[in-house]
Design a protein around this nucleic acid. Structure first.
Lengths: 230, 230
DNA sequence: GACAAAACAGGACAACCGGTCTGTTTTAGA
DNA sequence: TCTAAAACAGACCGGTTGTCCTGTTTTGTC
């Protein structure tokens, strides 16, 4: 436990190089990873300082309180993660449904490769912090809102192209986000990413027909095995 | 904050009545509520002791560690909550889809009445504890499994009655649980229970047609207002 | 009533947490 | 070069946390 590698080289005590942006980035990297792996409350500033190779004074200079650090992680990292893994791919896809499908599959594949499910960063923090502080809640709700709105916008774009005429953009977006969030929750708890593909399949088949239970690809039940993360 | 009511009447210091089952129940009541409202890590044993009107010795006698208490809450209360609000109603319903619909609506109505969304007890604890401890993870995964299996069983029962021939029980169950879990996650974060009805609607319309956007019931956008809980 | 076990009381404690404080070094601008 | 602000170092502190420990009281059993 604790720090395996001291990030900062302290060979020369008399020589120091100020690097506020780099230090800030290192702290955010470590905090993002630790919040994801252990949660906000279980991440102590001492652990973060050690892992980032940062002293208390430096940390306090950039992030006066733990709450400020978490808010910076949410607004600067979690929001970016949702943008990168969901919003951008969906908007760039040929259609909303194609985009959603590709995201589900990309995430499932990634989880299978790394052999460990850490869950959705947004949902992880949302569950822990939404009821604790209004500022946290507002920041997290904003990310959910942007996420849903992007999907709804894509549906509207599809509709202007003559497709998805019977689809309600808002409701469909809510369903897509909810399905992904819930599937990741289960995948994290069971450490089995297969549920992501199950949900995608059921979602694509209109929550009804799942085609032939025989003949088709046998359902994979791949239970992932641990692997240290942090 | 702290204890508003001291549950235990201490009028007679010399008179004491042993009530192990009652005390255990009181502790579990308080712990369940606090875990739900603040989470596991943010709930201190001191607060729980004060709220339940229990001394440290008594608490330690029944629950040697905080982990043991949480495990008891998960296995004794969270599992029962899922059974009562989901499994039993679905199995008792005329069909799986009817059961799912009634549960969604019942929960949405309940949330609207109490004006505050505390989230799904299972998902709340699952996000915070799944990666922390294997025992936690196993207990939580078991509840998810039972939940999904109950819905899948109901689909299979429907199929033996000639319905749902094109539905894959496992996948459909995964989608239902995921949708609910994710919808509750959003509802908690946005403090808006309307997303539950949005998701139910989208789910029932086969993730596609949401009927007329005009003429039909206007979508409710009811933002709930706070209300102390604990 | 004797007695052992269960049930409970309440204090003690060591570890830890987040925040603050003072002091030093680096850096940018005039 | 001088100077002030920014950047960083590192110790310090009050409060809290979970757990443990030693007693005392109640309760079931013979």
């Amino acid at each position: 436990m604790s720090a395996e590698i001291t990030a900062r080289s302290k060979i020369r005590p008399g020589k120091r190089t100020n690097d506020p942006e780099g230090l800030r980035k290192r702290v955010l990297d470590v905090a993002e990873a630790s919040f994801q792996a252990r949660g906000y409350n279980a991440s102590s500033l001492g652990d973060l300082m050690a892992a980032a190779g940062v002293t208390g004074g430096a940390l306090h200079h950039h992030f006066p309180t733990k709450k400020a650090l978490a808010l910076a992680v949410i607004e600067g990292r979690v929001a970016a993660a949702v943008e990168a893994t969901w919003i951008a791919p969906v908007l760039a896809a040929g259609s909303a449904r194609e985009g959603i499908r590709s995201v589900f599959e990309a995430v499932a594949t990634e989880l299978e490769q790394q052999g460990f499910v850490r869950g959705c960063p947004l949902n992880n923090l949302a569950h822990e912090l939404s009821l604790v502080d209004p500022d946290f809640r507002a920041a997290l709700a904003g990310i959910f809102s942007a996420w849903r709105e992007a999907i709804a916008d894509k549906i509207r774009a599809d509709q202007q192209a003559g497709r998805e005429q019977d689809t309600d953009p808002q409701r469909f977006a809510a369903l897509a986000v909810a399905t992904y969030s819930g599937a990741m929750s289960m995948a994290k708890t069971t450490q089995d990413s297969g549920v992501l593909r199950d949900c995608l399949n059921a979602l694509e088949h209109g929550a009804a027909s799942a085609s032939s239970s025989k003949g088709g690809a046998k359902r994979r039940r791949r239970v992932l095995i641990g692997q240290r993360s942090f």
